[in-house]
Design a protein around this nucleic acid. Structure first.
Lengths: 342, 342
DNA sequence: CTGAAAGCGCTTACAG
DNA sequence: CTGAAAGCGCTTACAG
């Protein structure tokens, strides 16, 4: 950026601030012997002029900016596929990708800047207001993938059309003739889960189907939730003939639970997942699921991060990529005589 | 390293070479107007004194060396878990991890050095002699995880005891009473696959069991190989009562193939996998498999890479971490009356 | 081809 | 708390 402009030097700042170069140097190096007001004025000017200390100039290398991707918990399929999209886009655009587990040690944001990072992409990480403030102070742009909280205009985020996905999954089940459809989801607090669940509710309502007490269960995005949650659902007095699972892992657990009690999928119970990770194709039977374009989402996050790193404005602080229903073999019309009284 | 020593400056080199600082500066910056012999002498001294241009000094930051992890193909569970181990170890030791898809563009090794990388870890990548030469010239240390080729003393590598794992898996099946045990593996050229297969052969021989024609099949490390390979094995005149699969994905495909023809696992067919990725626990039935300590392998690779980056010697250019049989629910004694003539 | 000299961006010990 | 001055590491236009 600013191709022909000379780098800002300490002398420029000194002149603008009406102090000596020495004083500016002290501010830059965090020396103690500077009056607070002088320091504040100089800092303001440094920031305004985009001054960059020599040690960090490599940070500038426009050819290969470095983006840090932070994740929380394990590198599950879902995260891994997103990461692939990030890495592919970075390679195309000549950027480098550093990965780390999210850690919010003191000065973490400043440390990232010193290490030459130009932006942060967070996958499944949680940021508090304090974190966001430290980030803002450090000037590091943040892009959140699949945000856990509702879009805050201070935060740029990339997600998928979870509501539409939940709607499509449920409509698919209704159109097969199911009426007793349950939703077995992830954490109640997670926005993506809420959106999927409300898509489910919207479809049920539009289709004139009841959502009985106990037909909506939150949990974790894990196989275990599928196993346990499905057992609970199938124990209901009026058990569902179809279960829409919050993600593929839950769906595979549901299939396992069904098998454990001698129910066949899809003849006795239909199951729909969410994500379309590699698990969906390896499931037995192969899973009908809502595809999230994880690679594309990763790519979009990387491109947004780079644009922000370049000081460009972004049209919208949140974008959602389209989900798509993928019909495989885990869904079918409900049994003639639905299994009775668990 | 060299804690108290002052950085080498152009002046040091100039004095040692008996030329002016200006001339040394020209050599460093690749200017044309220097006599070849002068240039050579100065370059020699620069190298000998470990001179580092200011632009690349960030490369030095001993506190946070950057290691590049290159992978080939997708970020499958297997690679993702290894990567987790690398990231955890790096975080412990204060190193940064850059990930990228393996690319061998011209000057790739030199470019990595300029970008400040201190070592390369390759996961499932293939290196030719030319690549190794370019690496050696650039001075970048390389650690290969799960090497595809036989250990070459120029290359440092980390693997698992694949032979012992193959032996343990097969002995487990033999001890359950199986005699007709087949091996459905990955690429015939991959060393890890060969080792697993020879472990299988060794156990069969020690147990006095035949390995009939067609009982050893190579393939890919994919679900599809499991599906197709198992179908072929079960079509044999004397089909196996147990299949040892080269990895968990293949094993899940085998279970699917068995189910497709009405065989129950483990009652009619026992299946053992390899890796113990998350897939193994989510499989139905949960998979008996040989655990590779993938996280630990990643950690060992990172530590080796850092030691090499620090110029330390490493005791052995190849280390193998122990595998361990994990018995779950996909193995059982063979049926009384083995399924006849496919 | 070489290097003395001027100059740049920055830091720091020290006088006020 | 401030800044003039000395100094460091490096680069470059130019004289030889």
């Amino acid at each position: 950026m600013r191709p022909s402009a000379r780098r800002t030097t300490l002398a420029d700042i000194a002149q603008a601030a009406g102090v000596s170069v020495a004083t500016v140097s002290k501010v830059v190096n965090g020396r103690g012997d500077v009056a607070p007001r002088t320091r504040a004025r100089v800092q303001e000017l440094l920031h305004h002029h985009d001054y960059l200390a020599p040690v960090f100039r490599h940070t500038e290398s426009v050819e290969s900016p470095t983006i840090e991707v932070q994740f929380k918990g394990g590198l599950k399929s879902y995260v891994a596929e997103t990461l692939e999209g990030i890495v592919d886009a970075a390679s195309e655009l000549g950027a480098s990708v550093v990965i780390s587990k999210a850690s919010h040690a003191p000065h973490w944001a400043r440390d990232l800047v010193s290490a030459g990072r130009r932006a942060v992409i967070a996958v499944t990480s949680v940021y508090t207001a304090a974190h966001l403030n430290e980030l803002a102070r450090s000037g590091l742009p943040l892009v959140v993938l699949d945000p856990l909280h509702l879009p805050d205009s201070r935060v740029n985020s990339v997600g998928a059309t979870n509501f539409a996905g939940g709607l499509a999954a449920t409509q698919h089940l209704l159109s097969l003739g199911h009426r007793r459809v349950a939703y077995l989801g992830g954490p109640a607090m997670a926005v993506c889960n809420q959106a999927r669940m409300h898509g489910y509710r919207a479809a049920m309502e539009a289709g004139g189907a009841q959502v009985p007490e106990g037909y909506v269960r939150p949990g974790e995005f894990t196989h275990e939730t599928g196993l346990l949650g499905a057992a609970a659902l199938l124990d209901l007095q009026e058990p569902p003939t179809a279960i829409f699972a919050g993600n593929d892992e839950i769906a595979v657990g549901v299939i396992e639970a069904a098998r454990n009690r001698g129910l066949r999928v899809p003849e006795d119970l239909s199951v729909v997942g969410f994500d379309d990770t590699s698990l969906a194709q390896m499931s037995s039977p192969p899973l009908t699921t809502v595809r999230q374009p994880l690679r594309e989402m990763g790519g979009a996050a990387l491109r947004t991060a780079l644009r922000l790193a370049n000081g460009e404005k972004v049209e919208s602080h949140h974008i959602e990529l389209a989900t798509e229903l993928v019909v495989r073999a885990s869904t079918a019309p409900p049994p003639e005589e639905p299994p009775e009284h668990g």
